[in-house]
């Protein structure tokens, strides 16, 4: 009886250890990456290439899903800050009415709406953020941006911060959930300016 119990306990410990460390980190990565690639065999080739090949930021943020170590976070933020291209004119404000349309629109870059020269892509801001108070169908993955400019002040500094945030959110928050709209070519310079206006124009409904 005693030996049986010991054997059972031994097996339990073995099983417990095996369950947590069955694959080495390298094995896990190699197999999962191969599996993912194989699973997109019928999908759009260009899309698949872009998804299979992570950039450094994506790879690091995937590796540390809970919280990225501080030194790595600073490295990511530095490299991402360097990607931001501010408008040559120095003018960061577009038209808030256009910005509102962009914020409502989730069109683009899916395999059913790959993009078209005649149809700009959307920013889909409302999917994650509260913005204008009239729109009650907003998501909560990101913070509320209602009264963004009014609360922070309509200054050059804040406008520049917003432009940078939309262009590349990883420049200020290494593994932010927010897409890098400028860096990854989702929104154009003019569209980002329009979104800045939605947040920063005193006449925008966001600041009412």
């Amino acid at each position: 009886m005693k030996t049986t119990m010991l054997a059972v306990a031994g097996l339990t410990i073995m099983a417990g250890c095996a369950a947590t460390t069955q694959l080495t980190e390298n094995e896990r990565q190699t197999r999962a990456e191969a599996m993912l690639k194989a699973g997109f065999s019928k999908g759009n080739k260009a899309m698949a290439e872009r998804v299979v090949q992570q950039d450094e930021t994506q790879a690091l943020c995937s590796k540390y899903p809970e919280s990225v170590p501080e030194a790595i976070a600073s490295r990511i933020q530095e490299s991402q800050q360097a990607t931001i291209r501010y408008p040559a004119s120095g003018n960061l404000m577009g038209d808030w009415r256009q910005g509102e349309k962009i914020a409502q629109d989730g069109w683009g870059m899916r395999f059913t709406d790959m993009g078209s020269p005649n149809r700009p892509m959307g920013g889909n801001c409302y999917a994650c953020h509260q913005l204008a108070p009239d729109e009650l169908s907003y998501g909560t993955l990101g913070p509320s941006l209602y009264q963004f400019g009014k609360a922070r002040g309509y200054t050059d500094e804040v406008r520049r911060y917003v432009y940078g945030k939309v262009y590349n959110a990883k420049a200020t928050n290494a593994c932010s959930n927010m897409p890098r709209f400028g860096h990854n070519g989702i929104l154009t310079e003019q569209q980002i300016k329009d979104v800045v206006a939605l947040l920063m124009d005193p006449a925008s409904p966001v600041n009412r």
Binding site: R50, T57, Q58, M109, P179, R180, N184, I186
Partner: peptide
Amino acid sequence: ELGDYLFHRRAGPHDYS
């Protein structure tokens, strides 16, 4: 374990996982 890896894997133009 592979599912765990894939669940957290960020990729594509929007960095989504």
